[in-house]
Amino acid sequence: MALSALLPDVLVTRLDYLASLLRKHSLWPMPFATACCGIELMATASSRYDIARFGSEAMRFSPRQCDVMIVAGRVVMKMVPVMQRIWQQMPEPKWCISMGACACSGGVFDTYATVQGIDRFLPVDVYIPGCPPRPEQLIRAILDLQEKIQKTGTIDGREFVHRQGYEGPTALARELTPDKLIVAPGDYQTATRKRVPLN
């Protein structure tokens, strides 16, 4: 096969590699710190742990300048539209790190007000367990994210196009039939369903 037939493909692949290489070393985090995990996030940014070593030190409080949203802490129900709005304001390509037990699963706050895992409402790339996670774990997550970007990233964000569906977990509890639902504002297709009272 003539090289000229291959050339466009080869060229695009190289560009993807180059773009991912550049992107992964300058991740600008959006610190969406809602609770105690946020303190650990600040510690990670400070001189002792220093995520500047990995090119992620430029925390910006404007979502329009960020690539990676770090959701650190519990998110209450009322905060979800805000979080989604911030996420939508971030330019592509963007990634999301869910930091701490609360952001990943609701943690110990299994109450009426707390979102049981932000992945019910947002696509999450890296989960960090721990309450709170150590700064080393956050650094590990950033390294993992860098690896993910290097492996899957494309210059025009093609890797996101196919991910049309909901990527979060399925409902936690037994689902009720529609006639048993008592109060049902909103759309129950994908989020936590109304549950059978336990007692």
Binding site: K94, V115, F121, L122, A191, R195, L198
Partner: peptide
């Protein structure tokens, strides 16, 4: 929610906002 007969889980809490997918966001 602070009524004593409010179940630990139930009655439409944590409801519902549309989840965002990767492709649309």
């Amino acid at each position: 929610p602070l009524r004593k007969d409010y179940p630990l889980r139930g009655y439409g809490e944590r409801h519902n906002f549309l989840p965002l997918t990767r492709a649309e966001s």
